[in-house]
């Protein structure tokens, strides 16, 4: 009985077993790369880590709707799950972490988490919180003006909604009915500031003021996120305008490798959320649906471990950028 119920859940969304396994791999790869980055940081090899841990379902569930290289994405620093779903690799992530010349994001120039790929239409992030939103609506406006059915996915944390840029972008998207999806990953904290000291009212309710729908979703349930994002993507492609998605989730690690979260949150709270780990939940679903068994689970783990090991070794041995090249990529160059 239980199996039939769960099967119907993904089938109703038009997802087959291969889709499910792909989503699972993306989530797991994002997690395992992230864990490796912390180890490298503690070994003194990586200067800085910022994590996706806990948010993989929100990211992969939404990004699975993207057409890589056609739609546009404005990810934020935790969105490893999104860029991996689009096609970035463990090697790409580690080259970026260790600031090597081959880092596809910036040739070793940006901080980790500042994703960028021209081929995948991943637009380079800037460090100030919230600046991606006005840029994203600009891209959406371009799609609309060209009469193309591209969609723009713009991401950020709950605290980024406190920025004026978010408001101006939301308003502009609403006035012009732009094909843009605002995916807010509400992970309860902005560094040390909890959501209840950050957000007056509810984020999801703000959409109404801009004249478009807001949907709240369990951000730790990859299929639930996939479902609301799918509806939002379809709406946007039909020319019906923007959607705000508030994915309720939790930041499982400290804010970054420079933060000590014991100073502002209880261990019990973190432990409670660890039980709701999105990867654990999806794994249970896959077992229930008969898509995954213990042997298959181990096999995937092994494959991913090998991939991360290979990527680590490759990145550690890769050269840094040539100092002579420091002035390049500031302005566009002739191709």
């Amino acid at each position: 009985m239980a199996i039939r119920e769960t099967q119907r859940r993904h089938e109703a969304l038009g997802l087959d077993e291969d889709d499910l396994l792909r989503m699972y791999r993306h989530m797991l790869l994002a997690r395992r790369v992230d864990e490796r980055m912390w180890i490298l940081n503690r070994q003194g090899k990586a200067a800085f880590v910022i994590s996706c841990q806990g948010q993989e379902a929100a990211q992969v569930g939404a990004a699975y709707n993207l057409r890589p290289g056609y739609d546009y994405v404005y990810p934020y620093y935790r969105d490893a799950g999104i860029v991996i779903t689009l096609g970035m690799t463990a090697r790409d992530q580690l080259l970026s972490l260790l600031a090597r010349a081959e880092d596809p994001n910036s040739g070793g120039r940006q901080m980790p988490g500042h994703f960028s790929s021209r081929e995948l239409n991943i637009v380079t992030a800037s460090a100030p919180i919230g600046v991606q939103y006005p840029q994203a609506v600009g891209s959406a406006m371009a799609f609309k003006m060209r009469g193309e059915d591209g969609v723009v996915l713009a991401c950020g944390g709950e605290a980024s909604t406190s920025e004026g840029d978010w408001h101006e972008a939301m308003n502009f998207a609403g006035i012009h009915d732009l094909p843009v999806i605002f995916l807010i990953q509400n992970n309860v904290y902005a560094i040390s500031v909890p959501e209840n000291l950050q957000v007056a009212g509810r984020i999801v309710d703000r959409a109404a003021g801009y004249g478009f729908p807001g949907v709240e979703v369990d951000g730790n349930d990859v299929l639930a996120v996939y479902k609301v994002a799918k509806e939002a993507f379809e709406r946007a492609r039909r020319g019906e305008g923007p959607t705000l998605i508030e994915a309720k989730t939790y930041r499982m690690t400290a804010h970054s490798s420079d933060d000590d979260d014991r100073r502002y949150r209880e261990r019990e709270e973190v432990e409670e959320w660890r039980k709701k780990d999105p990867i654990l939940r999806f794994k249970q679903y896959l077992h229930g649906a008969g898509v995954l068994d213990d042997a298959k689970e181990r096999e995937i783990e092994e494959e991913i471990r090998a991939e991360v090991d290979e990527a680590t070794e490759y990145a550690e041995n890769a050269p840094y950028a040539d100092p002579e090249s420091a002035m390049r990529y500031v302005y566009a160059e002739e191709e």
Partner: peptide, 18 residues
């Protein structure tokens, strides 16, 4: 009508708990 898709200005405050 051209500066916002929802010209209910009073209503906008609801989302701030005001």
């Amino acid at each position: 009508e051209r500066s916002t898709a929802n010209p209910d200005f009073a209503g906008k405050f609801e989302a701030y708990g005001i």
